[in-house]
Design a protein around this nucleic acid. Structure first.
Length: 491
RNA sequence: GGCGCAGUACCCAAGUGGGAAGGGAGAGGUCUGCAAAACCUUCACGAGUCGGUUCGACUCCGACCUGCGCCUCCA
């Protein structure tokens, strides 16, 4: 078991990770609200969580990864009176709430799959766990942490002294109504709704009976209820986007610890934002601000999903990352170079069996060790990646060893290195191939006659057919030019 | 008004109280009839600005400037 260091938002320091139960990690990651497509900023956070899970597993931990899918209770408005996002989306599209949820859930996992993000061990939907939420709210109420006002059940933050510790909030310094209308029903501006019976839910398709009346749950309660159900009342790691620190996670802590009376989450990890600075659009990506980019839009623009994963690996998860097409181009070029290096090594290694990681020579082993140290040091993927480059470019490391080491690193990076194959020539139309071969033969004749103006003209013609040509002492070889800018076929 | 984070080469982006990773782009070179590819070399005497602490600071402290995020939508 390798020592693992992580930055804990609770306490704001990097500390040696210690799970509750040796060798095991209970990990809860905040999942999507499935009322729209995920944008690439959202996806950055899921890539970060995937790297965390993969890194912990590579270091020897047995990780149970739980992720929620929010399909009810998440409001559109800034305050506690807006419509439910799911209901609004369903209305706009003239479909049922559950149809919307299913569609965008599928879209989400399709995107994460294309990014080589492993599916969590448990994916749980909020609507399947309302009874668990009601039971948990009951425990909070029994502890005297709630009050009922205006038809809704509120959590009273004044009853929870540690409220805001995660976000370093000082209740008396928060400016109530800085952005939103003050809810007259609230005793304290930071109070939040546990259960709604009032609101614009007359149109709410999904309502449940509860001790507080027919209605639906507040957004925050689902994570508390479901994480406890699957991981127990105290869990090792809870991760999510940094925006969740002051509200969502702060409220989750308050209600969870109010219910159980014990510490709920030992390690809080938060991924920073992907930010834009282009065409007048600055800052984080959101639908209202514009610049809402989906993974599919990148694919449509000719990028491979893994180009985006690679792009994200270039920055530390706790740093804001500047997104730009230029940056993505840079990542694509780098990934192509990486893939080409691996393919070249594979060719050099030939049929030699790859050694086990434990049997690597000192040079390769040192690269792998430095890689794992970087990863175990609060997921320093940029440094880890530098070790991969160093490994691939060290001429003293035998190809089979370099490959074995690279594939081991790729268990965490997940760039599909082990699955790389030469582009399949079989898919090329034979008629087209014959045409290209004929031109190459014609050019060879011209070249032999030193008629270079003719040979160059023929080459231009070949290239115009969408073919990449390469001369070598043994003759010319060719392949189809990649459509997406990468040479190798990728998984 | 309050709180938090950040300012590193053309771009993206790391580590570090004492030699400033890595990638992309650029430049030069080897190879080639010429290309392409590959490989090699090169690319911040300086880290927003100004002070301070220190034998020594990009790294710590302070001020200022600029940017980003948050103060009940948000990854």
């Amino acid at each position: 078991m390798r020592d693992f260091f992580l930055y804990n938002t609770l306490g704001r320091s990097v500390d040696s990770f210690k799970p509750i139960e040796a060798g095991k990690v209970g990990f809860y990651g905040c999942g999507p609200t499935v009322y729209n497509y995920a944008h690439i900023g959202n996806l950055r956070t899921y890539i970060f969580e995937d790297l965390l899970v993969r890194a912990l597993r590579r270091s020897g931990y047995a990780v149970t990864h739980v992720m929620n899918v929010t399909d009810v209770g998440h409001l559109t408005g800034d305050d506690d009176s807006g419509e439910d996002k799911m209901v609004k989306s369903a209305e706009e599209r003239g479909q049922g709430v559950l149809d919307i949820a299913r569609f965008y859930t599928d879209a989400f996992f399709n995107d994460t799959g294309r990014l080589n993000i492993e599916r969590p061990d448990i994916v749980c939907k909020a609507t399947d766990h309302v009874s668990d939420m009601i039971a948990l709210i009951g425990r909070i109420e029994a502890g005297g942490f709630t009050y009922f006002a205006g038809g809704n059940l509120y959590f009273d933050v004044s009853k929870f002294p540690r409220y805001g510790d995660l976000a370093l909030l000082k209740l008396d310094e928060l400016k109530a109504g800085a952005r939103i209308e003050v809810d007259a029903n609230k005793r304290n501006p930071a109070d939040f709704v546990l259960w709604f019976t009032k609101g614009k839910f007359e149109k709410q398709a999904l309502v449940w009976d509860s001790p507080w009346g027919r209605g639906y749950p507040g957004w925050h309660i689902e994570c508390s209820a479901m994480s406890m159900k699957y991981l127990g009342e105290s869990i090792d790691i809870h991760a999510g986007g940094i925006d969740h620190v002051p509200i969502h996670h702060t409220n989750e802590i308050a209600q969870s610890e109010a219910a159980t009376g014990k510490k709920w989450v030992n390690w809080w990890l938060h991924g920073e934002f992907l930010v834009l600075s282009k065409d007048g659009v600055k800052g984080k990506m959101s639908k209202s601000k514009g610049g809402f980019l989906t993974l599919q839009s990148l694919v449509d623009a000719g990028y491979h999903p893994l180009d985006y994963r690679f792009f994200c690996l270039g920055a530390h998860y706790r740093s804001q990352l500047q997104f730009s097409i230029e940056g993505l181009d840079s990542a694509r070029s780098a990934r192509k170079s990486l893939n080409d290096s691996v393919l070249s090594l594979r060719q050099k290694a030939g049929a030699v069996a790859l050694p086990a990681v434990a049997d690597l020579g000192p040079a390769a082993a040192s690269r792998v060790g430095a890689f794992l140290d970087a990863v175990a040091g609060d997921l320093a993927l940029p440094r880890a990646l530098a070790e991969l480059w160093g490994l691939l470019r060290d001429p003293a490391i035998p190809p089979a060893e370099a490959l074995a080491a690279a594939f081991d690193m790729d268990r965490i990076l997940a760039l599909g290195l082990a699955d790389l194959e030469k582009p399949k020539e079989a898919s090329i139309d034979p008629e087209f191939a014959a045409r290209v071969e004929a031109l190459i033969a014609k050019r060879a004749v011209a070249k032999k006659a030193k008629d270079f103006s003719t040979s160059d003209a023929i080459r231009a013609e070949i290239i115009s057919l969408g073919v990449v040509l390469a001369d070598s002492p043994s003759g010319s070889t060719w392949k189809l030019a990649p459509k997406d800018g990468t040479t190798a076929s990728t998984p």
